[in-house]
Simulated scan of single mutants.
Amino acid sequence: MRKLIPVILALLAFLGGAAAGDMLKGGGTEEAAHGEAADAGHGGSEAETAQDGHGAPAEGDAAHAAPAKDAAASSTSDGHGKAESDHGAGGHGGGAADPDAAAWFKFPQQFFIPVLHGGQLDSTMVLSLSVEMPGAATEKVYAHEIKLRDALLRQLLIQANTGAFDGNFTSEPQLRKMRTALVGAAQEVVPEITDILVGDIARQER
């Protein structure tokens, strides 16, 4: 009997240890199961939160982006429309010169006409002249500036030798006669010329 007691105690200790191990193992499994369930629930919440968080700003961004896009498109459309309108109004139609409108060319240098009496220099006439013509003839007049000046100078010398600058040379009949003669001389070079304008006229005594 004394020999069996240690064996029985060892057996009881073994059985008790096995039972305790099973209990600990079962408790750990339940805790693990609870932990996994909790993690799963937490993960789902985070996923839902993340989805809601991304979804809301996406909708907000889309809501903000749509008006911005529409505004940009409207602005672009208005800008191009305005540019095309301005280009059509000022670039070609408004800026084109009317070929029938009057234009003028002023000789850059004055005309100096000697007035002789008895073969002696008595005085010198100084005139500033301009040419009037249609706008379409502007380039032609500029191209013939030298010939025009020569023709007008010859006619002024004729006027001086026929007494046009004697006495009251500023009277209207005298000026009209001289201008008519100058227009005729200019039209021999450029027929489109319509008038000769006298800007300044003065007599320098000897």
Rank of each mutant, 00 (worst) to 15 (best):
A68F: 05
Y142M: 06
H117S: 15
G21A: 15
K69L: 14
N161W: 02
I196S: 09
E172M: 01
L148I: 12
A136T: 15
P173T: 10
Y142I: 06
G90E: 10
I8F: 07
L156V: 11
D100H: 12
T49E: 04
L116D: 04
E48P: 01
A97I: 05
R203H: 00
V7M: 06
K106E: 14
S74K: 14
G43C: 09
Q159K: 05
L15N: 13
D166R: 06
T162L: 03
L11V: 14
A56K: 13
L4P: 03
A13C: 13
S45W: 02
Q187M: 10
G79Y: 07
G41S: 14
L197D: 04
L152P: 03
Q110P: 00
F107L: 07
K82E: 11
H64P: 08
D61H: 15
D200P: 00
E46Q: 10
G95A: 13
H144I: 03
G81I: 07
A83R: 02
G79M: 03
T29C: 13
L12T: 14
G35C: 12
D22R: 06
G79L: 14
E84P: 04
H87K: 11
D70M: 11
A50E: 13
H144Q: 13
K69N: 12
L116A: 11
A89C: 09
L116F: 10
A33M: 13
V115I: 12
M178E: 04
E139N: 05
A89F: 01
R179I: 04
A72W: 03
A103N: 02
A202T: 08
D166A: 08
D195H: 00
H144T: 04
T194R: 08
L182Y: 04
K140Y: 06
T29W: 08
D86Q: 09
H54W: 05
H42D: 14
L11I: 12
F112H: 07
T49N: 11
I8L: 14
H117Y: 13
T194N: 03
P108R: 03
V141K: 01
P191M: 07
L129N: 00
V141F: 00
H87N: 09
A73I: 14
V115D: 09
E205Q: 01
A58F: 01
D150G: 10
L157E: 11
A50N: 04
K147E: 15
G16R: 03
A56M: 06
A151M: 11
A102C: 06
G55S: 13
D100A: 08
A40M: 13
Q155A: 04
E59V: 10
P134K: 06
A89L: 11
H92S: 14
D98L: 05
A97N: 08
G53M: 10
G27W: 12
